[in-house]
Design a binder for these strands. Sequence first.
RNA 1: GCGACCAUAGUUUAGUGGUAAAACUUCGGUUUGUGGUACCGACAUCGAGAGUUCGAUUCUCUCUGGCCGCCCCA
Length: 420
Amino acid sequence: MKLDTDPYKGVRDFYPDDKARLTALFAIVQDVLAKYGYSEYDASPLERAELYESKTSEEIVNEQTYTFTDRGDRKVTLRPEMTPTLARMAAAKRREIPFPLRWYSIGNRFRYERPQKGRLREFYQVDVDLVGAPEGEADLEVIRVGRDVLRAFGAGDETFSIRINSRKLLTAACKASALKDEDHASYMRLLDRKNKMEASEFEEKQKELVGDGKDPLACIDGADDPSVKEEKEKLETFIATLKERGIENVVYDPTLVRGFDYYTGVIFEFFDTDPSNARALFGGGRYDNLLSLFSNDEIPAVGFAFGDVTLQDFLETHDLLPEVDFSSHIYLATPSEENIPAAQAFANELREQGLSVFVNLSGKKIGDQIKDAEKRNITHVIVYGEDEAKSSMVTLKNIETGDELETKKENILDLINESL
RNA sequence: GCGACCAUAGUUUAGUGGUAAAACUUCGGUUUGUGGUACCGACAUCGAGAGUUCGAUUCUCUCUGGCCGCCCCA
């Protein structure tokens, strides 16, 4: 019985093509983030389990983490998300580095779940956070960054909508309603699922929690309660400001809740407008209390994250996946094995000039080598044998067009650049 | 964690209670410095284990994996 070549359940192998695509995707993202002055940080995927125990959602911690005990009896968790790590790192250096921080991180996250469409046990995620700035401009900026990331891929405003809500508003509405304090969390969970169920089913379940009294959504609509009114107006102003600044595809969504317990203010999701991929692409919000887990200093923060799987699903749905070509510029074919050292030396000269060169090491027939170049998507071939080693001239063959061009060795760079 | 469906070469699929076909891919070849076509050849203990049977890839069960829905979420 041979070993299985499949990767572990719910995780992926990244073959060169896949890896190149992922890298290309993130390069586009990083480019946008750099323009906003965000710098990259990273950390180990291993964290103390306690980091997640108080503030992440209960279900994620209890049922969806990879948690184990190490040889020193420490409880260890493979990070299911990055925000607690970011909070830990930011809190640790709060007296050393200038705030606010504009930080991002790209890395893998682990969740022990049943894999299915757009959901795996290991996925890559970009986390973008602005730490140390109060609500207002920071929140506006972060949403704009998200919008610009999608724009950088060529996604128009019609391909996604930005759903916005406020945890403060939800909390105020829950308090103003007939809801009991201990039922706030269950109500929010119900609200989160509202769009997935029939209106009648929602009414029924809402009634179970609220009874005949006023429900939170009605409180928001009526806005008679002063704190509901205040939060509602703040949210309306926030949305209006986004629109004034050119972000038009924003919509208030009273049922948006978000799963993580640590959110305290504005929450948002970038949602694919295509019905075939109806899901959240980016999700985030303000979490002003998370850093106080680590210190007495209050450090407000806002941020969002998105996964590689959902991003690729989105780009595919809208036909926006960038073309990736990572093949070499030039293929050096060698008529016999004796020519290989000379070909390598010539390849090195070309590499010095910045070209990427593939040298054939097989010593097979030239015809086979050209076939090989074709399979590898390398369009330019130079047969490099004794004659070429002696001469200052070389023949550059374009295997797409079949054209051959005899040229001086030092002119190759220019010729390649022209054809690209 | 719950439920549905699926599981034959690297891939996509045929097929049968008596040990399996095809296309494409990959690799090798069609005699030695120039390819894309054509031709020949190689590559499957039919996901794993158990049961029924004279005999199972084909039927049953269990497991594993995939895929999808729920839950949750990116």
